[in-house]
Nucleic acid binder design. Structure first.
Lengths: 348, 348
DNA sequence: TTGAAAGCGCTACCAC
DNA sequence: GTGGTAGCGCTTTCAA
């Protein structure tokens, strides 16, 4: 029979060409069983000649891995998440996995749909960078023994695999940096996410240690579905800055929010950092793009991506049986948006 | 037999529960054949009761679609691509498709590897946003009748499905905008990509119409693998601006490059746009983040994503047999980085 | 060291 | 209308 160029070539073709059974071919593909060097060589040659590539779906049907991981992420257009996805994909590629990436927009229904769909597609596991404020679905997965690792979002009192930074510490560092510069009256802008609440908690804790207290007028926790961070950052900043006892510094819980804060402040005639200090969070690429370059709390995005995939693979391979949690440390990246507070600077 | 909570439930379980054959179940799943309402209802109920979800891989083995598309993209961390990926995913989701996203870094070997791998995984088609300066692999796919659509990258003399903007026109618009403002001496910064070369061609064409000519000292085409656009933008800008006959405006072929240009110019003491006009390309979110907000040539990213998936699906479904190419139009988004050139402004 | 054969979960053709 | 059955391409006993 003529093997046309379009014919999909299967294990049978290889077997025929190498004059062995498909069982033998399968064994050399998977390096299992005992095959003599001679046959092995012959089979390999046949595979090469025919440009044979095993159909992964068929083998998955037999219980093998699909070598595909589902990544649920709130919003790829958000630099933090796209950079994280990038890193996870990089490491996945190194380890032989592909990523199905899904945007959830913090929408529970979408999360459900994707989880279910990717399950049907037999992904080997899920990386969840999504909101999942609701633990039910995650528990369901775990009960069904599907590998799950949560990233950038910790569930302190729940037994899941997770990699995240110490958000509390991040907030703590931010506050201390600002206080060291002499700021006492600080405004904060956050989102209604666990991680952001932790950052605030750390922030407040640091304040507390110095006998300071956050002015509730200068605390804003925006709705999770307000997607335009820049706008929100601007609005809040305007509100804060127009008050008589306006803050001398702002802690924004992500870089985008900080960008908005800076834009608005400048537009209102404030000089940054002379009249107002701003500190962000995440250290995404936009921190270096805005002017002045943003002082921010860095999440080690690359390491996070790496750790996530490594953890995932160790779970899949079964070498990690108990749940484990890796916590990375945030760090202060000083750039140009924070400066020592001087009394005179408050009246510009 | 006790159906444990972990048992994977199959079409057989449904058949048993509904007291029909698996053939019948299959028919109600796929809405094929003739099934009486009574049985249909019974089967559906059984599926619901058992929380049955068909194994997509198994049906794919039988020649059905995997409902998964491979997306090859140079770099998810680049805002243009992450925003595009976001839009493609959105539309894919609406149409019932998932996306396997792969970063290629314009690396031919990675492109090959991914193409081959995703092929094994039986994706229904490929969206290529990657470099693919080399057409061979694409031709190979097409010959094998695998649906392919190219995005943000046109192959004018080659018959492929593609959606892209008119890059020539984009460059043309940019040049005209600058010339209308009185600029005659303009520097350009581009990458060594087809799209960028087209933009330059359009740019030069416009110049030509006005009897102007690009000073070759102020033209730079950076290597495709130089990944740090900001840095490159800065370096070139410094070089240009330190010349005696320095340009009064810069056309950067993407927003990141423009961001670098602006940073450097400001650092050298130039006021933007008073002493130097800068125009970018893409209109990514960073255009609104930098200061001053960047005037740029917008690519309609959302429409592009939509068109790409729509085209892909129409190819898969077989309703589009001939190749087709959709060209979207770029548009000028005026913000704050371009301004009329005044003679005095050249000596600040 | 090799191969025959029994599936994996599903679809589709052909009988009844 | 419904069901039996032959695969899809692969892995994995179990015999030879």
């Amino acid at each position: 029979m003529e093997k046309g160029w379009k014919m999909k070539i299967t294990i049978y073709d290889v077997a025929e060409a190498a004059n062995v059974s498909i069982a033998t071919v399968s064994k050399v593909i998977n390096n299992t069983g005992n095959i003599s060097d001679k046959t092995r060589k012959r089979v390999k040659q046949a595979m090469k000649d025919l440009e044979y590539h095993p159909n992964i779906l068929a083998s998955a049907l037999m219980g093998k891995q699909t070598k595909t991981i589902g990544l649920l992420i709130p919003d790829l257009a958000n630099p933090f998440f796209s950079e994280l996805a990038r890193r996870i994909e990089d490491r996945g590629h190194e380890l032989g996995y592909n990523l199905v990436i899904c945007n959830t927009d913090y929408d529970g229904d979408k999360e459900d749909k994707y989880l279910q769909l990717l399950n049907q597609k037999m992904v080997d596991g899920f990386v969840l960078a999504s909101g999942f404020e609701d633990l039910e679905k995650v528990e369901e997965l775990i009960k069904r023994e599907i590998p799950v690792v949560i990233v950038a979002r910790d569930f302190p009192m729940f037994s899941v695999n997770a990699v995240a930074i110490d958000d509390f510490m991040g907030g703590y560092i931010a506050a201390n940096h600002l206080m060291e510069l002499g700021h006492k009256n600080i405004g904060v802008i956050a989102r209604d996410l666990w991680s952001n609440r932790e950052r605030l908690r750390g922030f407040n804790h640091a304040l507390d240690e110095h006998g300071l207290k956050l002015n509730k007028n200068f605390e804003y926790i925006m709705d999770i579905h307000d997607i335009d961070h820049i706008y929100e950052g601007r609005e809040m900043t305007k509100k804060y800055l127009l008050e008589d006892d306006r803050p001398t510094a702002i802690f924004a819980c992500n870089d985008l929010l900080a960008a908005g804060a800076i834009q608005e402040a400048k537009e209102l005639g404030f000089k940054i950092p002379e009249n107002l200090s701003v500190i962000g969070f995440d250290n995404t690429s936009i921190a270096t793009v805005i002017d002045p370059p943003l002082t921010t709390i860095a999440q080690p995005i690359e390491s996070m991506g790496r750790e996530v995939m490594d953890l995932m693979v160790s779970i899949i391979s079964g070498e990690k049986k108990e749940k484990s949690r890796v916590t990375l440390l945030p760090s202060l990246v000083k750039r140009k948006t924070t400066k020592a507070f001087e009394v005179t600077s408050n009246t510009y």
